[in-house]
Nucleic acid binder design. Structure first.
Lengths: 200, 200, 200, 200
DNA sequence: TATGAATGAGGTTTCATTCAT
DNA sequence: GATGAATGAAACCTCATTCAT
């Protein structure tokens, strides 16, 4: 009995993840409004009605993804910052972790970050909550930049601005990769760091 | 009695522009699918029915914007390249022109460039035509980078990759600006060029 | 002044006829509901707005046509019956006159007769009035048939039924002709009469 | 848990038939353009949205009916021709079968036959396909007429023309019946054949 | 749990009609 | 008289969501 219930829970969680995975892919490709519940269901291979056993609405799927995504970025930072490394190496680590994200996750993150403040598609309170976390994340990145600047290896400039550019460039590299417009030979995002090195 | 035909034509063109202006703003803010024809009409201050005197469908509005936008970028490059300047200064000029775009136009351009290859929302032939132009544009930018590299002042690297990053960074600066997250003090995009300077 | 007013009246009448002519053609070809006011205007070569200087509504155009058409059939019968001919020859004359109608007029007449009783597209009172005339017309034709039967040359049978068949066959011949499916060699509808001759 | 797949399929087919039945009735009564999807839905007793679970558009409903109808006429001929009867008796059988059609089906057939060549409402290819079948059908009827003529009992004349008249007269009798304008006493369409008998 | 028929709010689009010019 | 921009009611169609099975 308990075993079954436990197993059920696991299956349930797996289904949820399948649904979210399909959804993020479609949301990124076509936009939230243009993605139909039945598209998601078809991608997972279930009937559209079944989606509602796992999520109350399309909105809820979107909000789940949003939340997961911001938290995911937060964890990524947590992990990198916890390492006993120099600021420069921590930044490198962040880059690599970001770059290792599934493309859709990364894209979703970026699109979402961009649209958060302009859009009225997200309810106020959530917007606040996610925005807060988002700004916190940027600030922690900025703190890293500041540290790397005082180490004398990074270029001058507003650390928050530079942090934002780092995310943008990583995103651009991901976009290029996803397009098959692979520039350069290497799979690593490390060269992006070079943009921020001090000129003599 | 017929009205003044010439004036009519002018008014018609003006209405088209009003509609396109409202549309690009909303498309950028909420996405094409989430933008209602009646939203556009309301923004212009006309009835939804009137939109259809000027465009056959929402799709046609989108395609018009697409075409205008790619051409607009092309013209921008044409103008900058025609100047009797060094590669570096031409790049600076491109940056300034890009930055002087209306925010929505720039955003639309970027979003579109990103989604062009991933999406199936644009009909094949148009996609081809716009894609061709888009790639041409990047290539012309890349040629400028190459020139600046051989002048010895720019960093090494695939010129097309760098060109893509230039556009991305400009876009990022625009996004930041539109958010009111103005980093730094200056309105000029010139500092972006510094990212690409050679390190010693 | 008076001259001008008179001339104006004439021009006005001409325009009305142009409009009605275009309308009947389109109504027959595509049905009333599928015919747009702007279709009619385009066929006449005027702007759609101008139609409303001559008719209050699309409905009014339809009703005008209806009225004209029923009256036209009535006149046709009046003329044929007024001739000093045998019943048989009068019928022949009716046939020829019917056949000489413009195709659209004939088609409109037939379609209308068919639909009158089944449809709810025509307001009650008009339906009554036109129906009355229509039945009168059939009855006068039937009287002719009866006369021809008592002359001993026509087949037996309910005269009204036979009269209805006469109209149907004429219509069928017109349809065939309009299709370019001309059967037989002759342009005359006279052979139709032979269907009704007595067998020995 | 999935429901019984077979039963589902059956229910689905039934719904389709309900919809088509309601549609043909309304199309015949008011014309395709004047028939609203919600009219059809209301007649079936379902919501308008449900129609689109079974047909992609109003056009598709119309095309389905068209196809069914032409095929239905073809089958009717097949059956009659397969009987070991004289040409005359086969014609009689065709008449009876035609007359036994549901009124709407017959009316639709006739209206459609009439409008096929005049209209531009049907897409070219389908028009070709249906037209071909339609002409084939008329030709097979005509062959019967020819046979009956050589048996010496039928009047002279182009067999295709006579075949077309046969259909027209049957249709006229059906119209008369549907109107409650029952002429004569009998329910049988047989007397129509007498029109085509040879005169001495 | 799983399905897909069913609903209906809401979007897109059409077009009869009006009206300023 | 003549035009065509403008309106808005009403049609078509979509799709999130519910629910019987």
């Amino acid at each position: 009995m308990a075993r079954n219930a436990e197993k059920d829970q696991e299956l349930r969680k797996e289904r949820c993840e399948q649904i979210l995975g399909a959804a993020v892919e479609l949301f990124v490709k076509k936009g939230v409004a243009a993605t139909k519940i039945s598209d998601i269901a078809a991608k997972v291979g279930i009937s559209h009605g079944l989606i509602y056993n796992y999520f109350r609405s399309k909105e809820e799927i979107y909000l789940s993804l949003l939340d997961m995504n911001v938290n995911s970025f937060q964890w990524l930072l947590d992990e990198a910052l916890a390492e006993p490394l120099s600021a420069y190496d921590k930044l490198l680590l962040v880059l690599e972790k970001l770059y290792a994200w599934k493309w859709e996750e990364a894209k979703f993150h970026y699109l979402f970050m961009e649209q958060l403040l302009v859009t009225d598609s997200v309810c106020e309170e959530l917007q606040q909550s996610v925005m807060t976390k988002s700004v916190e994340n940027i600030d922690r990145l900025a703190a890293l930049f500041k540290e790397a600047q005082s180490d004398g290896i990074f270029m001058d400039g507003d650390p928050r601005e530079l942090a934002f550019y780092l995310v943008s460039l990583t995103h651009a590299k991901l976009v290029a990769k996803s397009r098959g417009l692979q520039f350069g030979q290497d799979e690593s995002p490390a060269p992006i760091i070079q943009f921020f090195l001090k000129r003599t």
